[in-house]
């Protein structure tokens, strides 16, 4: 896995570097014009935001119920990436909304629940940072509750009538818009996997150093 990281990072760097040209060549959307192009970054970050929540929740459940300490490292890595990609989503979204809806922000269910999920990630990381000993289990419990919010986010847009585009928009995109979208999605996903890998490895090594210190103290 570790040998894969430089490859993934290099590839996603090249792809993200070329992304502006790909996005530039895509046609203009008929009603929204130029501002629609922020969608090529908004959609991948939003999906990875939810994926991070799922990884964090599942890893926490494995840590809590399966008693595998290593799973906790993956949970922390996923939470930090969730905060990063969530911030990207919450910054690119209003840029688009200002042009498309005329306002920066509305309290629509999907926007509200994305903001909530972002706040849950922040609270989780605050707990891990300042909670001290014992906060790992509490964090895992918190992450489980956070994961319970994810299906709520995804379904909410289809249940309530909202301003946010339906989730069925993406598969029906014309090819010349769909291609740059999936290109950006691939680049973001590779970056996500590489960062997740690196961060989890760092956390595992930190845990190991801590265990060695403790062992030396006892010796």
């Amino acid at each position: 896995m570790t040998k894969l990281n430089p490859l993934l990072i290099g590839l996603s760097a090249v792809m993200l570097g070329a992304a502006p040209w790909m996005i530039d060549r895509a046609p203009y959307e008929s009603t929204m014009g130029l501002v629609q192009k922020v969608f090529y970054f908004h959609f991948p970050s939003a999906i990875l935001f939810l994926v991070a929540a799922l990884i964090c929740g599942v890893a926490s459940a494995i840590f809590l119920f399966g008693k595998r300490p290593r799973a906790d490292g993956w949970a922390i890595a996923a939470a930090e990436l969730g905060l990063l990609f969530g911030s990207l989503t919450l910054v690119t979204g209003p840029l688009w909304a200002r042009k498309a809806w005329g306002v920066w922000w509305v309290w629509d269910p999907r926007l509200t629940s994305s903001l909530l999920l972002w706040m849950i990630f922040s609270a989780y990381l605050l707990l891990r940072r300042y909670g001290g000993p014992g906060s790992d289990k509490l964090g895992a419990g918190m992450a489980l509750f956070g994961m319970a919010n994810v299906p709520f986010i995804y379904v909410s847009v289809n249940v309530w009538r909202t301003l946010h585009p339906q989730t069925s928009v993406v598969p029906t995109l014309p090819t010349d818009m769909g291609l740059p979208l999936w290109y950006c999605f691939a680049a973001f996903t590779m970056l996500f996997i590489a960062l997740l890998n690196l961060r989890a490895r760092l956390e595992h090594q930190r845990a190991r150093v801590e265990a060695l210190y403790l062992a030396e103290d006892e010796a």
Binding site: L116, I120, S122, A123, Y124, L127, L138, F145
Partner: peptide, 9 residues
């Protein structure tokens, strides 16, 4: 800090 984000729904 932990309780409010979770219980806002």
């Amino acid at each position: 800090v932990l309780l409010y984000p979770i219980t806002i729904p």
